[in-house]
Design a protein around this nucleic acid. Structure first.
Lengths: 346, 346
DNA sequence: CTGAAAGCGCTAACAG
DNA sequence: CTGTTAGCGCTTTCAG
């Protein structure tokens, strides 16, 4: 570490060839004599050469890095900034995104840098980061429909792919789920098993996905004569599920079915139900959404609407790689279909 | 986006000064006439200039990026690689690490790139990544005592800080918890509330922290005359907690106290207990470890040994920044003290 | 306090 | 198939 790192020049000298030739074998460009290739390779391991990424990026204009950003909407106090990051990462949803993204990035030798953009300043930093060429593009997951980041990215002409369709049209590719169909699936299942006094806990209505899940659910209920379904808005956390169900149970003690807009809330709902002496699914059936890890962990295991997050995240990474590589120039969208997974809660 | 991005040269021309001067104001180096400074600033915003990070890194030899790597030990099949990432990120522990790290990195304008090193090949890639200068240093969290990555990093003379003391001495800084004290705290609490038929579910014994927590627990139990404490080894997951407790309950139906080496397992334990008609803490008291998010979410909320993960992660980031900056040259260690958090489970 | 000039290490034409 | 030659955009002595 004390000695200066060897450069192409050093390897070239060691192998008795030119820098260009060494560069070619390092980058696997053919047109290099097998014999020379071999001697270069030996010189490389003899010198312990590792190409300097900065020098390389300077000319290729690629960093092989993408920003994985979780963006909010409004501004958040300085103190809440860490809380934002903590909350995001703690959500099993995020883990699935990372898993799907990494799976696609790795074989391409690309790496994700984590960024949280919960304030306007932080969002500006993301844009700057990309404009500086610190990353080749961005994968963005918005926690709010009004997230201004997608528009900023598009305006700057930066390669980016979104998780979920932006509320306001933006010329960026995105992947999404047919949330309405998911809501429909949940309603049909609850109705199908005979529930008649059904309530629902939606996600934050500032999130488009929440609205859509709810709309699909309500439409289906209405089609079956259920004009009115009691609703409480939750925040996609276990706690909010607990609070929402506590409220709903007080007003509708005879409830026999619940649709929760995500599994975390469904878990909180099951807890409240149990604590109030209701058996799940015997007395009250509960359907969640996502099919995240807690769906399996929860007691009872959750019947839920599966959202193939890993596949969606993988698709995002693939699309971004295509945009970066220039293979794809026009924005496109990929919509995934939800699927009902029946376990024990309903 | 179509037009070439402006360079220092462009700004210099626009402001009628030299590149050097522009560079100085961009980097906030004083010794620049206020008037000129102002005109340069205007030229910058007029041109929409953003410094090229690659060019900058090439000369400063800094990327303002650090690798945040989660490393395992043995090799894992190709198919399990994504599962590894998924499992890691899904664990609330990881979220706390990220939160603590980001909190320190952000004010330093540094960014974490996520890497999973569960195979020898992946570990080699981490080393290469750093040697290429793609990141200035590494923050490593090992999931196994035999993790070879720390030694590789040290041998390559790369700046790195570890979460937890490495099993085999390595000249690298690390932060850790006084795990033994944590185990002692748990034992004392269980004993103090009158439990006499106590069992324990440890973490994987291949993890040093698990061994230490267990040792501290057993020592204290022994000091109080409990020569033998039934033990089942778990895997730090809810499922493993369920399995372990099912086994223990079958052999020791009269159990009245359980120490779980982490909260996730404690949650599984509570589920099993409840399903077998045992009240927590009335019939059986349960003490967890970590004080992670599930400790609060769990029913009943867990009495647990708090590990200040966010603070520990923040300390890691701080140490790494010092090593990178050359402010600190010798490896050091920071040991945090655990703390008992009493809630309802014991 | 400012400018000129020398690279940082690598890739990519372009010759040969 | 290989070598020569330009830069990529920026920081940083070193003069002035």
């Amino acid at each position: 570490m004390s000695r200066q790192a060897p450069t192409l020049e050093d390897v070239a000298r060691e192998a008795g060839v030119s820098r260009a030739t060494v560069s070619r074998v390092v980058n696997g460009v053919r047109n290099v004599d097998p014999a020379i290739q071999e001697s270069v390779r030996q010189a490389i391991s003899r010198t312990g050469y590792a190409p300097n990424q900065a020098a390389r990026s300077l000319v290729t204009r690629r960093t092989e890095t993408v920003a994985l950003v979780v963006s909010g909407a409004g501004d958040v106090s300085e103190e809440e900034r860490n809380a934002f990051a903590a909350r995001v990462v703690a959500d099993p949803f995020f883990g699935r995104v990372v898993s799907g993204v990494v799976g696609q990035l790795r074989p391409r030798s690309m790496h994700p840098v984590l960024m949280f953009a919960e304030t306007d300043e932080a969002r500006q930093e993301v844009v700057t980061y990309l404009r500086q060429g610190s990353a080749d593009g961005a994968l963005v997951v918005s926690t709010h429909a009004d997230d201004p980041l997608p528009a900023l990215l598009a305006a700057a002409g930066l390669p980016a792919v979104l998780f979920a369709r932006p509320a306001r049209p933006v010329a960026l590719s995105y992947v999404d789920l047919a949330h309405r169909d998911g809501g429909r699936l949940a309603a049909e299942h609850l109705l199908g098993r005979g529930c008649r006094r059904i309530v629902t806990v939606s996600g934050p209505l500032a999130v488009t996905a929440s609205q859509e899940r709810l709309a699909g659910f309500r439409d289906t209920m209405a089609r079956h004569g259920h004009a009115y379904v009691p609703l409480v808005q939750g925040g996609f956390t276990v706690d909010s599920g607990v609070a929402a169900m506590t409220e709903l149970l007080a007003e509708h003690p005879d409830v026999d079915g619940v649709f929760a807009a995500n599994d975390l809330m469904a878990q909180g709902i099951c807890q409240v139900l149990r604590e109030h002496g209701r058996r799940v699914p015997h007395d009250v059936a509960v359907v969640g959404f996502d099919d995240s890890s807690v769906a399996v962990t929860c007691r009872p295991p959750l019947t839920t609407v599966r959202q193939p997050v890993e596949d969606m995240a993988a698709a995002m990474a693939r699309l971004l790689a295509e945009h970066i590589g220039g293979v794809r120039t026009e924005p496109t969208s990929i919509i995934f279909d939800p699927e009902l997974v029946v376990r024990e809660s309903a």
